[in-house]
C-alpha cells in the first residue's frame, strides 16, 4: 500500500486529534493578527451609532445554547454598544430551549456593568410559543402577547413598558439568530411595520442573510465569530471573539491543508489505477 493509499484510509481519530491540537495551540501561544471590518458589520455599527440616545431597542436572543460560542459575543457586544448609548433594551426570545435564560443572564450581567436598572432601562419579556404569532401579535400590542415579563411581573408594573406599546415605539431591532426566526423578523416585522433590523447570525446562517442585506431588509450583518470579532473591534471592547479568531485561523488552515492533501492523494491514486488498468 502506497503512502497516499494509507493516507486515504487514515483513522479519522488522527484528524480529530490534529483539530484538537490546532484549537489549543493559539490559547497557549497567542499571536494576534489584524482583523479587517466588512461593510456589513460597519453598516450595523453605523445604524446603532445613528440611533438617538435613549431609543427603545429590541434585543432578540433567538439562539440555542449550542451556538453560545458564536452568538454570546455578539450579544455582549450589542449590550455594550446599546447601554453605552443609553438605549432602553427590551429583550425576548423565540427559542424554547434556553433562550429566555440566556437573555436574562447576559443582559443582567451587562446592565450591572453600566449601572442600569431593571424595569427602567431594560426589560426581559422572556419567551412565548410560536414565533410567527409572537412577531405578528406584537405589532398590535406587546402586552397582549407578553402580559408579564420573564419572571412573572406584569408589564403594567414596569415603567419602561409604559412608553412601549408596539413596534411603533421601537427604533431598532437587534436580532441575534442561529435559525430561521430571522427570516420572520424580516417578512413580518420589517416588511409590515418597517422597523429597521440589524442581524448577528451564526456563520451557518450568514450566507443566506446576504439576500436580506441586498434588499435592505437587514441594515447590517455580523456573520458568526468573525462578525462578532469585527463588532468587538468597532465598539473598542475586544474580548472572546477576537481571541477566538486566532484558533479559528489555525483550524481553517489545517482543514484547507487536509482538503489539498486529500485531493493530491485522490489524483495520485486515480492516475496509478488508470495506469494499472491500461
Amino acid at each position: 500500500m502506497s503512502f497516499w493509499e494509507r493516507m486515504e484510509k487514515l483513522d479519522r481519530r488522527w484528524v480529530y486529534l490534529a483539530v484538537g491540537i490546532a484549537v489549543i495551540i493559539p490559547f497557549i501561544l497567542p499571536t494576534p493578527l489584524p482583523i479587517s471590518i466588512t461593510t456589513e458589520a460597519q453598516s450595523l455599527f453605523d445604524a446603532v451609532e445613528a440611533l438617538p440616545d435613549g431609543s427603545n431597542v429590541m434585543l432578540v436572543y433567538d439562539y440555542y445554547p449550542s451556538t453560545i460560542a458564536e452568538c454570546e459575543p455578539i450579544a455582549i457586544a450589542a449590550c455594550h454598544h446599546l447601554f453605552r448609548k443609553n438605549c432602553k433594551i427590551i429583550t425576548l426570545s423565540n427559542i424554547p430551549y434556553g433562550g429566555p435564560s440566556m437573555a436574562e443572564k447576559i443582559t443582567r450581567m451587562m446592565a450591572d456593568q453600566y449601572g442600569k436598572t431593571y424595569g427602567v432601562d431594560y426589560v426581559n419579556l422572556g419567551y412565548k410559543y410560536g414565533y410567527v404569532a409572537v412577531l405578528s401579535g406584537m405589532g398590535q400590542s406587546i402586552e397582549s402577547i407578553f402580559p408579564a415579563d420573564n419572571s412573572g411581573t406584569l408589564l403594567s408594573e414596569l415603567p419602561l413598558m409604559d412608553s412601549v406599546k408596539n413596534y411603533e415605539d421601537i427604533a431598532f431591532i437587534f436580532e441575534i439568530a442561529d435559525n430561521a426566526t430571522a427570516d420572520y423578523w424580516v417578512s413580518i416585522v420589517n416588511a409590515q411595520y418597517g422597523v429597521p433590523i440589524g442581524c448577528g447570525g451564526t456563520a451557518v446562517m450568514a450566507p443566506k442573510f446576504y439576500a436580506y442585506i441586498s434588499s435592505g431588509q437587514f441594515v447590517g450583518l455580523l456573520g458568526g465569530m468573525r462578525g462578532a470579532a469585527e463588532y468587538e473591534i468597532l465598539i473598542n471592547k475586544q474580548a472572546d471573539a477576537v481571541k477566538g479568531m486566532q484558533a479559528q485561523s489555525l483550524v481553517h488552515l489545517l482543514i484547507i491543508g487536509l482538503v489539498i492533501f486529500g485531493n493530491v492523494g485522490f489524483f495520485v491514486t486515480r492516475s496509478k489505477q488508470k495506469r494499472g488498468a491500461a
Binding site: 483539530v19 484549537v23 460560542a69 458564536e70 465569530m225 472572546d240 482543514i255
Partner: peptide, 18 residues
C-alpha cells in the same frame, strides 16, 4: 462558513476547558 461556525463552537468549549 459552516466550517467557521462549527470550529467556533469547538473554540468555545476549548476556551472553557483551558
Amino acid at each position: 462558513y459552516t466550517v467557521m461556525g462549527r470550529v467556533s463552537l469547538l473554540i468555545g468549549r476549548m476556551q472553557f476547558l483551558i
